[in-house]
Amino acid sequence: MFTRIRRRALTLAFATGLLTAQVVTMGASPAAAAPQDCERGANGFVDIPDTLRGAQAPVAPVSIFGRTATLYVGSVRGVTRGWAHLGGDTLWGDSVWMDWTQNGGRTWLQCGPFEVSSGGQTKTSAAQRASSDANWQFRACLRWGRHDPPHVRCTAWW
Rank of each mutant, 00 (worst) to 15 (best):
F2N: 13
T3M: 09
R6G: 07
A15K: 01
A15P: 02
L18D: 06
T20F: 15
Q22R: 09
Q22Y: 13
V24H: 06
A28G: 15
A28T: 15
P30E: 05
A31V: 13
A34L: 14
P35K: 10
C38A: 09
A42W: 04
N43T: 06
V46H: 05
D47Q: 10
I48F: 08
I48L: 06
P49F: 06
P58C: 03
P61C: 02
P61K: 05
Y72L: 07
V73G: 08
V73N: 00
T80P: 03
T80A: 11
R81F: 13
G82K: 01
L91V: 05
L91E: 15
G93W: 03
G93A: 05
G93E: 03
S95M: 07
Q102N: 13
N103V: 14
G104H: 09
W108L: 01
Q110F: 05
G112C: 10
P113L: 04
F114K: 00
F114G: 00
E115R: 13
V116G: 03
S118D: 08
Q121D: 10
T124W: 09
A126F: 08
A127L: 04
A127R: 02
A130G: 10
A134I: 14
Q137G: 08
L142V: 06
H147P: 13
P149F: 00
C154W: 13
A156E: 13
